[in-house]
Simulated scan of single mutants.
Amino acid sequence: MNAVADHDTAMVAGPVLGDGDFQFLRGFVYQYCGIALSEQKRQLVQGRLARRLRALGMRGFGEYCELLRRDPGSELDELSSAISTNVTAFFREAHHFDLLAGELLPRWLEQKREGGRLRIWSAGCSSGEEPYSIAMVLAEALERCGRTVDAKILATDLSPAALAAARKGVYPLERLEGVSPERRRRWFLRGEGEYAGLACVHPRLRELTAILPLNLLHEWPMQGPFDAIFCRNVVIYFDQPTKQKLFRRYARLLPDGGHLFLGHSESMHGLSDEFELIGRTVYRKKPA
């Protein structure tokens, strides 16, 4: 998930973010990232971007805003990483994975022909915990299925730093708290020597997962269809029109009966009539 945090534990002294520059940054971030920054986020943005100013050798926020005006694309990735906090965990909101493992995947795999296609999208994959959790459940279901199915997980995010961590697939052992002992043994390789205290995801999980950059507000290169889309703890930071547009776009990539998973504090209520709620933040696309 990409979310603007409510606080920064380390406030960085440096240039002051004035009203004009902050209003420009608010508009820029909304236009390019879809995130609505409130006035209460000013100190956070100032602290986060002060580090970026130092890296660029700039003396003030006016110079930075001028760079964004002159060449928005050159700095978009760094800006999004600077203001984003990636909060995630393996098997976060475990009921989603229970539904996937116990009901949905067995049904989908039973319906697929030999060599059939199964696709799941983790939209806002952060540092990889969500798509690798899906991959564990999918790999186990494929083994039980006993047939050859073309199954893949697409994992996308806006933040280059988050994507780099996801591609690396190496995590401190304490980050594996949500993973059962059996799955830890099966799907992680424990580091030794200089990698002591770390665990690397199993190559099979990497094989199932494609990790790519994507801004949800821009054009989407994929055509679908997806059997399921996970977009959890992402849309809560968008305004209502952006949410409505995003849900319409998701609906176009899901077949009738396809599933959309949202975060625990998110809802489609009043935002889309193309889905029906079938469980805790689990939606199913209605027949056309």
Rank of each mutant, 00 (worst) to 15 (best):
M1S: 11
A3E: 09
A5M: 07
T9A: 13
V12Y: 02
V12G: 00
G18R: 10
D21H: 12
R26D: 03
G27C: 13
Y32S: 05
I35N: 00
L37G: 01
Q40Y: 07
L56S: 01
G57I: 09
M58V: 00
E63L: 02
Y64A: 12
E66Y: 10
E75T: 10
E78R: 13
E78G: 13
S81K: 04
A82R: 10
A82V: 11
I83T: 06
I83V: 14
N86S: 11
A89S: 14
L105P: 14
G115H: 00
R117M: 03
S122T: 05
S126P: 04
E129V: 08
E129P: 07
Y132R: 04
S133I: 14
L138V: 15
E140T: 12
R144C: 02
G146F: 06
V149A: 04
V149N: 05
L154I: 03
A162M: 09
L163A: 06
L163C: 06
A164W: 04
G178D: 13
G191S: 11
A196W: 02
A199C: 10
P203G: 10
P203C: 11
I211E: 05
P213Y: 09
L217E: 12
L217M: 15
L217P: 05
H218S: 15
H218W: 10
W220I: 04
Q223N: 00
P225T: 04
F226R: 08
D227M: 02
F230Q: 01
V234K: 05
I236C: 03
F238Q: 00
D239N: 13
L246C: 02
R252H: 12
P255V: 10
D256G: 11
H259P: 00
L260I: 03
L262W: 01
S265D: 01
E274G: 02
E274L: 14
E276Y: 09
Y283H: 05
R284G: 01
R284A: 07
